[in-house]
Each structure stands twice: as C-alpha cells, then as structure tokens.
Nucleic acid binder design. Structure first.
Length: 834
RNA sequence: GCGGACGUAGCCGAAUUUGGUAUAGGCGCCAGACUUAGGAUCUGGUGUGCGAAAGCACAUGUGGGUUCGAGUCCCACCGUCCGCACCA
C-alpha cells in the first residue's frame, strides 16, 4: 500500500494552468472528529426504557479487550453499528451497548511476564479499545458499559453463583477432570477440542480433582427442545448444539454375575432390540466394579496393571487407537436376562466411564466396535437383525427384521425395541431411559484473573455461600500470579482465613476462580440495567429489553458461550428474575477475514492494522469495504486494494454532493430526469431489503451502481436537473449513512439540513416508481437467446408470442416453418421450440 | 468413518422471491483523454474460440438425468471447508 493521505494530498493540489482545483477533496480527519464529537454530544445512542417506539436490542458478543483491533475485528463492529444506525432511522428504540469480557488469561500471562497488575493492564487496554471503536465511527450507549473484572459487575456474578448454589445447581465434586498443563488449570469439556486445550493447544490430561460444577444437565432436555423455537438462528449452530447435547433413547437394565450373586452390572443401550445377540459384557476400565470383581482372584494383578496402563494413555491416544481395541477378561460371567445365556465379562478401553453406566452389553452382530473386539478376542457373534441380501460388511447396524431373537423374531427395529422394553419393565429387570452426552459444566479455575467463587469452607457447616451483604468477595492482591497447580489466591493467608458466615467459627475461603464463560453468561442482562447498585438487574428493565433482537458473533461460540448463556437464562427465568426463556431471538454468525490462508491473528503474524487505512482513506471507506468484501456469513479474503475501491465510490458521492461532477441546471424535467428518480427509488428499496437480509455486500454494490448512474446523468450533455437532484440525492445519503456515517452527515449538513441525519427517518421508496413500465422480453429459440425486445410489463401471453414470432431473427431461423411449440412467460421470456 | 456446507471471469463476488437475459458491483489489466508529471480524475474495453463485422459455437468442479428451458432440481463422482468422531 502507498503511504500518505490521499485527501490531504488533494487539498493542496490545483491545476497548474487553470488554477482549478482538479481533485474533489475533503479533510477527512477533521470531518470524522467533528461528527464523532457531534454524535457524542447529541447522545444518539443513549436510550431509555420509556420510549414509545418499539424496542430493538442490538448486541454483539462483548470482546476481550486486547487493545489492538485489526481488520478482522472491524467487520463485526461495522455490522453492529450499521444495524444500530439503520434500526434507529427505521424508528426503533435501539439499545446497542458495549462492554468487556475482561477476565481471562492474557492479562494474567502479561502480569506473570512483566509484573504489571492484570487490572491495570486490562483497564489501559479498554481505554485503547474505546478509542479505536470511536475512530471507526461506532456509537454505543456507553452509560451501560460493563466490564466483568470490575467489582460492581463481579459482585453480581458472585450473587448469581450463590443463587445457583442455594438451588443445588452449583456443587463441588471429586471427578476426573481435564487439566491443561500449560495453563495450569482445569477446563470444561466444551473447552477441550480433540483432546487439546482450546486456548493454548497443548494436550489435556485427566486428573482427579475436587471441582465446582454447574448442573447444566438438569436443563439438557429443555436446552434441546427450545432449539426448535430459535428459527432465526443458523441451522448449523442449532445442529451443533443438538449434537453436543446428544440425546439418545434406549433402555437400562441389570445383569447378574454368575460367580458373584450379590453383584449386578447396570448397562445402557440404544439397541435393546438386539439383546438376544449379546455375547459378552464390557466395563470401562475406571468402572468401580472392576476392582470388586477381581479382588483376591488370579485376575486381580493383571487387570490392575491393565487399568493402570490405560489410564496412563491420554484420551486422544486412547481414541486414536481406532479399531484396535484393548481389553481383558475379568474371570466372571454375566447372565443375559432375556435368555439366561452365560457371557464373559471384560474390561476394554473403548468403553467410557463418563457415558451411560460405564458398562455395555456387547452385540458384535449389530455393532462394529463390538465386532472388532469379538473378532480380536475370539468371542461368539450372533446376528439378530437380518442384513440386506447385498450386505457385505461386518456388523450390520441398519434396520431390518429381527432374527434369532425369540419373541422379537419378525419385527422391525422400532417394534422390537418397544416390545423388549415393555418386557424389561413388566419383568422388573430394566426400564426405558434417556441419556445425554452433555456433562455438567466445570466452572472452577486455578487461576488469578477471574471472579472468586464466593464460598467459605467450614469444618462443621461444610461449604457455605457468602451472604449477599458480604459481596463482593474481592480479588486479593497477590505477590505471584504464576499458577502452580493451585490458584494463586491460595497463597494469600489473609484471603483464605476467614470465619464461617453460618456458625462464626474459623473457616477457609474457596480459592478457585470462575471460568470466564460464567461472566459472559449473563452480561446481556446487566446491560439492561448496568448501573443498578441494588440488584444484578431489575426485572422491569430486563423484561423491557429482552430477548435480544439481533445477536452478532463468531461461530466459534456455537456451543460454548451460546449454550451456557441459554442455560443461565433458563435458570434465571425459573427463579423469576426474567420472563424470557431464551436470550437470543436472532443470531447471526459472521465469517472471518482471512489473510494468507488463515484467520488474522497476532500469533500468525498476518494481522492487517487499520491505522494506515484510516490515514489514507478514512473510517467510512474502511467500513464500506468491510461490508463489501463478501457475503457476511462467509469467510472473506483480505484484499489490500479493496479499500481503494470503496474510497473511490465515496469520493464520487462527495464530489456529486459538492458540485464537482457534471452540471445541474434549473429546467423542466426530462425523461432522463424521471428515469434517475426511478433508479434511486429502486436503489433505496434494494438497500433496505439487502440490509434486512444481511446482504451488505450487495447493498453496497447497489449504491455503487446507483451512484454510477447519477454521475453519468450529471455528466451527460444536458446535465442533471437541479430539482431532481435535490429530490433524490438526499435519499442516497440517507441510505448510505449507516454504512458511511461521517461523510454522509457532513454532506447532509452542507445541503442545508438543520436536523441530525442520524435521527432522521429512513427514506421510503415509491412502489409506483420502482415498478418498471417496460421490460426486455427475451426471445429464445430452443432455449438459446436469439433476440431481445422492449415490451410493456403487462403484455399478455398471446401478445408476447406474437411479438416473438414477428421477430426478424426468429423469422430467419424459422425460415417459413411452423414452430412445434411456443412457451411464453410474459413479460420475461418466450421460448420458440422448433 | 458419519453429518453438513460450498465449488461461477485473472481475483473477490452477483444472479433475493418461484428453474426463465449467467457473470451485477469491485479489484486487477489494456487503450485513450486531461497533464511538466499521474499513483488522482475522466472515457472506452476486458469469459474462451472462430470471424473484418454481423454473428456463431462453447463456458457456472466432472459425468449423467428431469425440463421447452438448469448456476439453481435429482443421481454419481472429484475437490475444498466446517462440525462430530469408540457416546453403546
């Protein structure tokens, strides 16, 4: 890219001979600052709940305050501001707040490196980020700013935690959890991607630790069911959530152990119809019965060794084994409840303790995993579903007729399932059950820069919630931020040692902090009442603004944040704090900006800073290119020349508005004048419809086309009509304003308007002008375009046919012959078939 | 492996509603104008092949199909991306 401001350069350039200023120009920097000040002074985005207008809650996912915005980030911010300004002009009471997801590891890691307090680090970056958002021209209701690291916010995060705790929705338990050795903290399942830490990418290991969980599984069914209501969400995101929740229906039943009559094994299966085909039983290596069944036997030693071996292997490697399944016989047998068959009991690495009962009935005939294991260890295989005649696979998992299954024989899968479950239930041996893949949300973290968990551990009272009047539990100052397997808070004696709020005895504080996804699970509610000192938010305000009419963010949160926030909203609904059950009525997931084949990121070194573009082209041109770069849903490749293009377009609008293009005269309107009015009305309609469907790239294209037409009209020999220009040019400015607010505001003012453009109403188009009187009728012969004629739009089928056949081109091809068939679809097309 | 999305000029992309003018708009490129100069601005051109032109033929990943007509619908394949991945 070239350096130096084009606009500044133009300001000093004049034609050397004529003295005429040869370049339309304006001091873009001065105009930007001027209007940013005006918007602030006019408080265009400060809203109250008491407006008579319909409300519109416009929200983007609040960002981590990194301090450095790059072109990839700006796309998102441009969309939000565009929508904010557009909806305001459309007459809505628009809430567009902004805040900071300001707890988290970057600030803490910086503190470890440089010693600067995470709070100071974070606050300074917030200041920088706000400057950058202002520079882009974005307007927010800053009176509602929230930052989750500030005590006036996390006080209420803690308050919410204690509500969850009191309801039994927050609990502490010992469990094998995901431990990230790099970040020295535990992670939620949702934060482990293919066995790796979502943040740092290093391999996660399992550790048995006592951790805090939120009981999101209590809400699994509702979280699943209500996805159906979210019809303004991308299907993709809903599907991902459905899969993550992972509901399955089946049966649970127990089996007696032949050698140990006092012991029975519970199994869960989604294929109870295949129970007659069960030839062995498998326990997960971590299953509690493993030790019990082998203690004192010859199997005890080898099995213990095997279990130790398996637990050493990371989950990734364990799953990476694919078809090579490792297992071991336990020396005992189980009885198949449906036919009394005696079957060996194994442990195997392919059965997971965390799902179902941690034990399975193995049916190799109908399950490929069981097939693999059975063939490896020489176990019987019985088919109980008749495979299709042409089936040449191993296990057959599809639907079919039950065979070798006694009273199920001849039934199809669904009927067989229902029948056997009824049988289990009447025999009292088992029951119909539902399983979810979703696990409870692990929220404790062994890190400093997060919200302290407001719990006191008392020797006699157990875990006690910190009472409301003692909130917030402030983050203590620490000497060392470095995590060493436990929270840095644990090293602060004055923090740890306290008294029990319940009995007054000596007690210790919980030293873990919360996952930052807890903070972000309710911030949108705080925005509705951000300065409330007595409550997290008032129900009146929350009910006025919720649900969020448009939520914009990255698809990377499809499961994490979006699932947690839905969970929180449902809990708060159930507690009576808010009426809605779903927070986000409409969700839009925008694509990323890609450069050199990767998402822009500091670590990849492919970040494009907006600074030089601000210098040379200004905020409006950047915004416009962010909109124009491609479909909003798709990833887009950054093109250094793109801003040049949108800048040229803006420049043309500017020169048109300041009389530097063509001529305008006072005269009676001509056909060309009438036509340009139509062109503008059509553009207004298209821009409006395109914004409504998030097709910003085509909205910009429509305006470019419109401005090209305007310029040609003004440059034509007869020039443009002043009255016509005065009628249509402001319309163009108005619809361009949400995209390029600075320049349009300036021109709007220079055209003599007293009112602020930002609060002016959106222009209406006249359908009569949008409608076309005549169209091009395409005449095809055998599907190939052979002629085009102008016809009135209301042309009849007969007239169109006649006109087509009268075409000299068609006549020439027909050469006197009769067409076999004529298909007329007036006024668009006639196809003559010969 | 399973599921989903996508594949259009040199590049990014358009073709909304119901199958009906494929390639809008931008970038880039070529030529010209104004110029001491142009990296500004303006004018014209720009899918491929044949042709002086009119025009003709061929082009939406590949191959089939449905249809008067397919970028759009159906089938198979190739490629790219995303999600899930021993969840019983």
């Amino acid at each position: 890219m070239r350096s130096g401001s084009r606009y500044r350069k133009r300001l000093v350039l004049f034609h050397p001979h004529t003295g005429r200023r040869i370049m339309a120009s304006y001091d873009i920097a001065a105009i930007e600052v001027k209007w940013q000040d005006r918007w602030e002074a006019a408080a265009v985005s400060r809203v109250t709940e008491g407006s008579g207008k319909p409300k519109f809650y416009n929200l983007q996912m609040y960002p981590y305050p990194s301090g450095e915005l790059h072109m990839g980030h700006l796309r998102n911010y441009t969309y939000t501001d565009l929508l904010s300004r557009y909806k305001t002009m459309r007459g809505y009471n628009v809430l567009t707040p902004m805040g900071w997801d300001s707890f988290g590891l970057p600030a803490e890691n910086a503190a470890i490196k440089t010693g600067v307090h995470p709070r100071d680090f974070t606050e300074s970056r917030i200041v920088k980020m706000k400057e950058q958002l202002r520079r882009l021209g974005n307007v927010y209701d800053w009176d509602r700013e929230v930052a989750c690291h500030r005590p006036d916010y996390y006080r209420w995060t803690q308050w919410l935690f204690t509500r969850f705790f009191n309801e039994g929705l927050a609990y502490k338990k010992d469990a094998p959890v995901n431990w990230c050795p790099q970040d020295q903290t535990v992670l939620a399942n949702e934060q482990v991607i293919n066995g790796e830490c979502e943040r740092c990418g290093c391999e996660v290991v399992k550790r048995n630790l006592s951790q805090w969980f939120f009981k999101i599984t209590d809400y699994a069914q509702r979280l699943l069911d209500d996805l159906d209501m979210l019809d303004k969400w991308p299907d993709r995101v809903r599907t991902m959530q459905r899969n993550w929740i992972g509901r399955s229906e089946g049966a649970q039943f127990s089996m007696d152990i032949v050698e140990r009559p006092e012991v029975s094994i519970e199994v869960y299966t989604t294929r109870p119809d295949t129970t007659f085909g069960m030839t062995f039983v498998v326990l997960a290596p971590e299953h509690p019965l493993v030790a019990e069944l082998t203690v004192g036997t010859e199997y005890e030693g080898p099995v213990a060794a095997f279990v130790a071996e398996v637990s050493k292997v990371s989950e990734v490697d364990r799953l990476a084994g694919g078809n090579d399944k490792q297992g071991m016989f336990l020396g005992v047998h189980a009885t198949n409840p449906v036919n009394g068959t005696r079957m060996p009991v194994y442990i195997a690495d392919y059965v997971l303790m965390g799902y179902g009962t941690g034990a399975i009935m193995a049916v190799p005939g109908q399950d490929q995993r069981d097939w693999d294991f059975a063939t490896k260890y020489g176990i019987d295989i019985i088919r109980t579903v008749e495979p299709p005649a042409d089936f040449d696979g191993e296990a057959y998992t599809g639907d079919g007729i039950a065979i070798n299954s006694d009273f199920l024989n001849g039934m199809e899968m669904a009927e067989a399932k229902a029948t056997i479950i009824d049988w289990f239930e009447t025999q009292g041996k088992g029951a119909r059950t539902v399983q979810f893949r979703l696990r409870d949300w692990l929220i404790s973290r062994q890190r400093y820069w997060g919200c302290p968990i407001p719990i006191v551990h008392c020797g006699s009272c157990g875990a006690v919630a910190v009472p409301d009047d003692q909130l917030p539990v402030l983050l203590p100052e620490v000497d060392n931020y470095k995590p060493e397997g436990r929270s840095p808070l644990a090293a602060v004696d004055s923090f740890v040692n306290t008294t029990c709020p319940s009995c007054g005895g000596a007690a210790t504080r919980e030293t873990d902090t919360m996952d930052t996804f807890v903070d972000s699970s309710w911030y949108f509610l705080r925005y509705t009442d951000a300065r409330n000192e007595n409550e997290a938010f008032s129900r009146v305000n929350a009910d006025y603004w919720m649900g969020i009419d448009q939520y914009i963010g990255g698809v990377e949160h499809a499961i994490l944040h979006l699932l947690y926030a839905r969970f929180f909203t449902k809990v708060l609904h159930d507690m009576g704090h808010v009426s809605v059950e779903e927070p986000f009525d409409a969700l839009f997931t925008q694509g990323m900006i890609v450069k050199d084949g990767a998402k822009m990121s500091k670590s990849k070194g492919n970040v494009v800073s907006p600074d030089p573009y601000y210098e040379r082209y200004g905020a409006d041109a950047i915004r416009l290119y962010e909109l124009f770069i491609g479909p909003a849903t798709d990833d887009a490749v950054w093109n250094d020349n793109g801003v040049e293009g949108t800048s040229r377009f803006l420049d043309r609008i500017w020169r048109m508005g300041t009389g530097d293009i063509g001529t305008l005269t006072e005269r009676a309107a001509t056909d060309a004048d009438a036509e340009i009015v139509k062109v503008v009305h059509r553009a207004v309609k298209k821009v409006t419809n395109d914004i409504d469907r998030f097709a910003f790239n085509t909205a910009v294209a429509a305006l470019m086309e419109c401005s090209n037409a305007l310029a040609s009209w003004m440059r034509s020999d007869e020039g443009g009509n002043q009255a016509t220009f005065d009628e249509v040019f402001p319309m163009v400015l108005l619809v361009l304003a949400p995209m390029a607010p600075h320049m349009t505001h300036e021109l709007w003012e220079r055209l003599g308007n007293q009112t602020l453009l930002a609060t002016h109403q959106w222009p209406e188009w006249d359908e009569a002008l949008v409608a076309v009187a005549s169209v091009t009728l395409v005449i095809q012969v055998n599907g190939k375009v052979r002629d085009r004629i102008e016809v009135p739009i209301e042309i009849s089928e007969a007239e169109a046919t006649e006109a087509a056949l009268a075409s000299p081109r068609v006549q020439a091809i027909l050469d006197g012959a009769q067409p076999r068939k004529v298909i007329a679809r007036p006024p668009k097309i006639v196809n003559v078939v010969i």
